[in-house]
């Protein structure tokens, strides 16, 4: 996984609560398992009409937000199905930071497995960010968000911060200690076949 760097970008405002993973990636795409290429299915039913033409009023179809890497949304983002495809789609589309007042548990955890930073902020600050039109800077190292007029700090678990900064995931982190694990297993009195 790539290490997480500073993200400097405008925000894409998605002023909706309870954005569930069925909306993030509809079920018909779940059969596919490659991690890349899911960006084109992101918010599929909100982005395209029946004939798969872009719906002009949906925020992702507004060219002003074309290069945005930061999505700001309402409460309980990522609720519903546990599909990890939801995070794959956000990341593949270009979002590496999601800011919301609250997240659904499994989605929140899935973000860290894939190098996406979910930031939980107070409702009022999120509302302010939803209206922010300028470029903002998300600095994970210092846990700050700089807007043209403000500097906001955010909380993150130190372990989750470390895995994002170093581009690790739980599995590769464990395998950093493979030598020690093997050594321990050799010393163990219980035969490993048990």
């Amino acid at each position: 996984m790539e290490s997480f760097k500073k993200v400097i970008s405008i925000v894409t405002p998605l002023d909706k609560v309870n954005v569930d993973t069925d909306q993030i990636v509809p079920k018909q795409f779940l059969k596919l398992v490659q991690k890349s290429g899911f960006g084109k299915f992101l918010f599929f039913n909100w982005r395209y009409d029946e004939q798969e033409n872009e719906k002009p009023d949906f925020v992702l179809n507004n060219p002003n937000y074309g290069n945005s890497q930061i999505l700001v949304a309402g409460d309980n983002f990522g609720c519903g199905s546990s599909r990890e495809h939801a995070v794959w789609a956000l990341l593949d589309y270009g979002f590496s930071v999601i800011i919301a007042p609250s997240f659904a548990d499994i989605f929140f955890s899935n973000c860290f497995k894939n190098g996406v930073l979910p930031i939980t902020l107070d409702q009022k600050l999120v509302e302010k960010l939803l209206r922010e039109t300028g470029v903002i800077e998300v600095d994970l190292e210092n846990q700050t968000i700089k807007t043209p007029s403000d500097e906001i700090s955010f909380e993150i678990d130190s372990y989750q911060k470390k895995i994002l900064l170093e581009g690790l995931d739980d599995i590769s982190l464990t395998f950093q200690y493979e030598d020690k694990i093997l050594e321990f297993e050799k010393q163990s009195k219980v035969p490993s076949v048990l």
């Binding site: 519903g80 199905s81 546990s82 599909r83 990890e84 995070v87 499994i106 955890s109 899935n110 497995k113 894939n114 995931d169 739980d170 599995i171 464990t174």
Partner: peptide, 24 residues
Amino acid sequence: DSHTNTTGALGAFACGLGHTDIAY
């Protein structure tokens, strides 16, 4: 799967995880 919670009715701790967590 997110509805893994179902099986808590048997008196177990049952919860859903994403693919990476399951692989782990």
